[in-house]
Design a protein around this nucleic acid. Structure first.
Lengths: 232, 232
DNA sequence: CTCGGTTGGAACGGCACCGTCTCAACGCTG
DNA sequence: CAGCGTTGAGACGGTGCCGTTCCAACCGAG
């Protein structure tokens, strides 16, 4: 291509300090007003730069947020590997706890997750970021526990992941009440026991005659009294 | 007061059909763009009415959303009471599953929860709505299980609630992958076993120091220690 | 039947943001 | 050290929303 031209240099190169200021500003705005209300102007104002500084780097609000989110995920998360499922879990829970205790993360993560529900690009980026991080730390921990024989090879890993992070995420990001001392160790212990249970492997409740709980006629079938019309 | 005047009547009374149209429009907008981007004009346009129709009823976007959310929570949730902790849990999980499968709820709930993290009014309303609904269904189920002797009276009910709804919420609202058949029964079984574990009662991992649970009054005051946005 | 009082709808000025464009300042490359 | 090429900053027209004001239509109380 046209590389006979001389390479940009001097003042003609993106200033890293301004890029960092913008990244920080985006995170703060994201925490304060959320993705929905995030505006380029506010970000630029907060960073103390012009809007051009933003548009030269990213070109759109979505691209900007996507890039910054991807970068954040590169945070190398220390991977617990103690040789014991229980200890690995406790460390993992401590890590998650620390991350979600962070003021910015505690606001931004749920916001982006909610936004991901309606913006496929964000959903994809978040997924990619989390996976790329460590190919899902929980999966690794489970895999090693299976290799050691601590867990059945037939365990439903998806459900296992839900069990591992679901309760703590709910507590930290939704319920948002303080953790009593001893909460994390107890959660780790209970979760470990639950994972070890033979109930976690698929072919358990299928002896011969299935249909144990067809469709739960015990409760109303489909939230009929919903005030909102289903069809648009 | 001045009731000598004649009461409003005829065309001088709020039309219920327009109110319902507005409610539906708010829910749809909430699902499509979220609370952050929600605008009065779009709501009115979607409902096919003028903005005045909105401002006469609510006066502000926050008040509008708050009122509608409160009303939705009045949905009488069927309260499982089978006499067995496991069956109660399975039914509860089925209910949560049905609610969060609903297209609108699946989008609106996480969005509002994220918004609640930065708007105390929304947080308070959501809390009140959920509590008022059934004074926390999970708490009731736990209480009855304790009365029946299925659970230890010393169980950490907060952690128990996290264990009950955390995994399913994570799966439905965050992970958003399909539930394999048998997921709910298995989750109910595993959770029941975990709750029954002696690990769920406080004085387990404290051989030397008792640490007699200081912050455990009969009723939580109001979770006042809110992490108000401190200095950036 | 009359008309009071409120309704829904539209128009209005103000404001924030969008995305583009112009322009002086700048510092390294050659 | 000269100047190239990009930089950051501000200005600009356009758009969408806010919250208010104005007005004709309307229906039932009296």
């Amino acid at each position: 291509m046209t590389q006979n031209k001389r390479a940009p240099a001097g003042a003609a190169v993106l200033r890293g300090d301004i890029t960092s200021a913008l990244r920080a500003a985006v995170m703060q705005e994201l925490a304060e007003v959320g993705y929905g209300r995030l505006s380029i102007e506010r970000v630029a104002r907060r960073a103390g730069v012009g809007k051009t500084a933003v548009y030269r780097r990213w070109g759109s609000k979505l691209a900007m947020v996507l890039d910054i989110v991807s970068e954040l995920a590169v945070h190398k998360m220390p991977l617990p590997d103690t040789g014991s499922l229980h200890d690995d879990l406790e460390i993992l829970l401590q890590i998650v706890n620390q991350v979600l205790q962070h003021r910015l993360a505690a606001q931004v993560v749920p916001d982006l997750l909610a936004e991901a529900a309606r913006n496929p690009q964000i959903a994809e980026t978040l997924q990619a970021a989390l996976r790329a991080n460590q190919r899902n730390v929980a999966d690794l921990i489970l895999g090693r526990a299976i290799e050691r024989g601590e867990l059945s090879p037939g365990i439903d890993t998806d459900a296992a992941v839900d069990l591992i992070i679901g309760p703590l995420y709910w507590r930290l990001a939704i319920s948002r009440t303080r953790l009593p001392s001893g909460y994390l160790p107890r959660l780790a212990a209970v979760t470990t026991a639950a994972l070890r249970s033979e109930l976690m492997s698929p072919p358990v409740p299928k002896p011969a005659a299935p249909a144990p709980k067809p469709a739960a006629p015990v409760v109303a079938p489909a939230t009929p009294a919903d005030g909102a019309p289903v069809t648009a």
